[in-house]
Design a protein around this nucleic acid. Structure first.
Lengths: 211, 211
DNA sequence: TGAAAAACAAAGCATTTGCTCAAAAATTCA
DNA sequence: TGAATTTTTGAGCAAATGCTTTGTTTTTCA
């Protein structure tokens, strides 16, 4: 009987490596701006600086580029939450998570918008990840947070909604960037600084047990 | 000299009224799901239950439907914030705003996603509204909140970021609905109830002055 | 160095898309 | 009622879109 193996992944050549990266970078730009259906292969090829057939030489379809991006995204997206772990000072532990999330919003706004677009449109290529690894991770961390509540180390809060509020407030600065810039036409540096101060204050308030 | 008047708006006939509404309803469904570029006139006509040329008899283009929807949306979106006004009990005044916003997210998720789509994609048809009426309204309310801070009636917070955090946390329940449903497969009623409890608690915490 | 393999792109193909045309059907109202 | 008006649509058109075909250029490596 023949051994069933994972599809052979020949190591990528130098050129393959370079071009796949160019395409993924282009896909990030274009998909995050227009969503999957709004993006065209022409736009992708243009942004990647190569011809359309050449792009399709590296990825079999527009959808394949999109899926590859989402897969890559998931890891990076989960990472900060994975790092949230047991601590003697749970409040600071959670605040560190908030700061990491905010920093990611700032450093990777396109990734944030790519993710937001996918979820907004019903997560057609992502619902597996949501109900699988994402849910498991959140369930696990929710338990941890719940235990901190039970031990009186942080205030009593619904851990799931706490996590949702961290996600929403931090990602807002990437996803609704245009709106924020329209309302606060000051420089981004200052907005980010104020956001960090505000969010730290807010989450510290809700997490600090009432005397 | 002839008087310059606004373009004549003949009152709409019964049929016109009905069909324009059908089209706007269809547009809300389709645009909120796929974004402007991802939506097609065929989808719109289908969802509206009429032929493509007939739809284009009522609106000159796909974009016109989109713009009409956004204009209608703006009013409803601003309304709850407009109602935020002077009060002897500023904390409750703000909490009422939070609750209204959350209720809107629950009652009009498609509208919320339509808005989110537009902002995410750079607000190509909305940047005027953001820099105009929206900014003015937010500036005004920020001053009000700042005055409450100054008078010691609420804690010291950055009023702009407070408003952003109210928007992001409440709209999250509409915009990221798929993600939340994937993580919390309980019934929506309960999620909404818990969300309200959590958010009320959170904003009360940050707004209550430290003794 | 030269033949095999990999990388590339001009042209093209079928389908979709946004919108129009011309004419038919339905409605209005004198 | 019947002529004028409004509403509706089948057919179609040019452009865009996703992807392929075909063949050329570049790279690899024995």
């Amino acid at each position: 009987m023949q051994k069933i193996t994972a599809p052979k992944k020949a190591p990528l050549s130098r050129i393959q490596e370079k071009n796949r990266n160019l395409i993924l970078k282009a896909g990030l730009e274009v998909f995050s701006k227009y969503g999957f259906r709004g993006a065209t292969v022409d736009q992708l090829a243009n942004a990647a600086g190569m011809s359309k057939p050449n792009l399709l030489y590296y990825f079999p379809s527009k959808e394949a580029v999109h899926v590859a991006l989402l897969e890559e995204l998931l890891e990076n997206w989960l990472e900060p939450l994975i790092e949230l772990g047991p601590s003697d000072n749970p409040i600071d532990e959670i605040l560190v998570y908030v700061k990491k999330k905010l920093a990611m919003s700032r450093a990777y706004p396109l990734e944030s918008r790519l993710y937001a677009n996918e979820i907004l449109q019903g997560a057609p290529n992502f619902s597996g990840a949501i109900k699988g690894p994402l849910k498991e991770l959140v369930d696990e961390k929710a338990k941890l947070i719940q235990s901190w509540s039970d031990e009186g180390k942080i205030a009593v809060v619904n851990p799931y909604h706490l996590i949702f509020s961290i996600w929403s407030t931090t990602q807002h600065y990437a996803d609704f960037d245009v709106q924020i810039a329209g309302i606060l036409p000051t420089d981004k540096e200052e907005i980010t600084k104020d956001a960090e101060t505000y969010l730290e204050h807010m989450f510290r308030s809700i997490l600090t047990p009432k005397a």
